[in-house]
């Protein structure tokens, strides 16, 4: 799924990374707990979260993710947007809640496959 389609489905606003909206992504995950993202996520390119601090971007960077979506209209700081931009990530914000946002992406074909379940 193109990141641009994610933006459309979630009625999102682009905060940075406008140039990368045509990138393809194949899976996503949603969590407010970065420890869980670090523990269980594998090969997901998109992180949906309601948590707003710089560690969200660092966590995404560690996991080689390319897109962060803030749910519930969360607005990151200017510093966070700059940090994500430096990392070449797309950052979106949506008014949708986590459940609704994940549901829309999942039902349109962006699954959560790739998570490690050992």
């Amino acid at each position: 799924m193109k990141i641009n389609v994610i933006k459309e489905l979630l009625e999102g606003r682009v905060l940075c990374g406008e140039d990368h909206l045509d990138r393809d992504v194949y899976s996503a995950c949603g969590s407010d707990m970065m420890s869980d993202v670090l523990a269980y996520v594998k090969d997901q390119a998109v992180l949906l979260t309601g948590l707003v601090n710089s560690q969200v971007i660092r966590t995404a960077e560690m996991m080689d993710m390319v897109c962060i979506v803030f749910v519930r209209s969360k607005q990151p700081t200017k510093e966070m947007i700059e940090l994500a931009d430096e990392c070449g990530m797309v950052m979106l914000t949506t008014d949708l809640r986590m459940y609704e946002a994940c549901g829309r992406l999942f039902t349109n074909g962006l699954t959560g496959y790739g998570e490690s379940h050992e």
Binding site: M34, S35, L38, A39, Q55
Partner: peptide, 23 residues
């Protein structure tokens, strides 16, 4: 996994779930 001595304010920052050392 799940054991943590981190204070509550750390949990609100997305960490302190007792996953650090196991990870």
């Amino acid at each position: 996994e799940g054991f943590s001595t981190a204070p509550d304010n750390i949990r609100s920052l997305g960490f302190g779930a007792g996953m650090g050392l196991p990870n």
